[in-house]
Amino acid sequence: MGEIVAGCLAPHPPHVVYADNPEQNEPNSEGGWETLRWGYAKLARKLKTLDYDAIVIFTPHWQTYVGTHFLGLPHFKSKSVDPVFPNLFRFNYDLNIDVELSKSMHEAAKDAGMVTMMMENPDFRIDYGTIVSAHMINPEWNKPIIPISSNRNSHYYSVEVMNEQARALGKACRKAILESDKRVVLISSHSLSHRHFTVESELPEDMSKQHIYNHSNYVWDMKLIDLMRQGKMDEVINLMPEFTEQTIAETDSGSLTWMMEAMGMPDYPAEIYGYQSVIGTGNVIASWDPNPDTREVVL
């Protein structure tokens, strides 16, 4: 029987990969955003102690309007260039997909009445959100991944509809994982508050210029993190429509709702690994460890 061994909220500003200077990324930096990067390093160390087979990532930057899409080919190799921050992120990737689990999640979602599709075009490029989150939690890239597209229900209908659809998708994915023989880590890849500054400092990693876009967004982010610490994820998901609208949050993708539902709506404290703003947005790294023996108070 399969198992979800952890779920991570892993934001994907390309700045953290840029700041880390991995060999796969073309641009070079003088660092920056250490609070997030050190948090990621600690989370990556913890994940190394867990026994798991694959990483499932729900990504806001593979945006689909016609249903939810899953990748259906075993291997992708190319260069991912961030369309918004191409100066920071031009990443040469070479990665593997667990197509078997991808297909079974696709089938489970379809059986649950959702509109789904397998993506089988070999020229398809993997989005930067998927790559940033996957790289930061597993820089060795030694596990296959399963990216899931974000259906833009928030745009087409409302955040309430998004929340319901994401919950249904979470249930279906949970079913497929439990019925498999795989142990998986789930990744919800996004920021919290998501208002950007529309100008960039001359040196993007000039940390004297980095701060949250406004105080209201900061207070909302802290409210959510506080609830995460208290293990009140049910309340977080119920607050999602208001939070998303008030802070233009990247939770509009449905990613966190999907992950929480797939994990059976955790009522235990999240591990908090760091919070920092990146060009105005609010980013927290958090993890939910279902095992009370290995669950930590990190920060």
């Binding site: 899409h69 599709m117 993506m119 089988e120 075009n121 020229d123």
Partner: peptide, 13 residues
Amino acid sequence: WVHVDDDFHYLGS
């Protein structure tokens, strides 16, 4: 480059 659409990838590259 070779571009593929996020939604309509099945129509081709």
